[in-house]
Amino acid sequence: MDFSWFKWLMFIVAAALSIVGSLMMVTRRNAIHSALWMIATFIAIAVIYVMQNAQFIAIAQIMVYAGAIMMLILFVIMLVNLEKDSVPERKFSSRKFTGAVITIMLFFEILVIATAYQITGREAVYSASMLERTGNVRVMGSLLYGQYLFPFELASILLLIGIVGAVILAKRKKE
């Protein structure tokens, strides 16, 4: 059986959902709506990760981004965003317009490079069939606890510093 049409279908659906979701995220005036569209975008990107043999990263994307980070953002929106922020925020600004135009020009540069670019370099050993035999998470674990052990430990220290910093910043000062 040939399932490549299904791969194409999945890719088109996930790509369309991520593009539409991010566009809606940028254009919605209500910050809560933006956050909900952002979650849809993250899940669509997780689907694309699965198609690229990165199952562990796809699950981590859903748990860390769509779960933890977006929940934090929603909490802060509910704490901070008063209803007066929903008054029309559009005021034409030539600086912002120029910035958007320059960004779109940079996008066309990315487009040219992405279409002309041929990936070169040595092939590593983790092909799709090897990952299927060994298991994606096992390979990730052996890399993280082997070759990348030092950065992994540094990441734990970074997380600790982040926790302490967030608590100190958000704590109410006693007067």
């Binding site: 990165a54 562990f56 990263i57 981590a60 994307q61 860390v64 981004y65 933890a68 980070i69 934090l72 953002i73 802060v76 990936i119 370099g121 040595r122 092939e123 590593a124 050993v125 983790y126 092909s127 799709a128 090897m130 390979v139 990730m140 890399l143 993280l144 990348y148 950065p151 990441a155 970074l158 997380l159 510093i161 982040g162 926790i163 910093g165 967030a166 608590v167 910043l169 958000a170």
Partner: peptide
């Protein structure tokens, strides 16, 4: 494309940094 796992490992670290950044930024 290069059948390498290094890309996934890098993404893992970027996610770690993004989580820390979210906590500190929202504070």
């Amino acid at each position: 494309a290069l059948s390498s796992m290094d890309g996934a490992v890098f993404v893992f670290f970027i996610m770690t940094v993004a989580a820390v950044e979210a906590a500190v930024g929202l504070a």
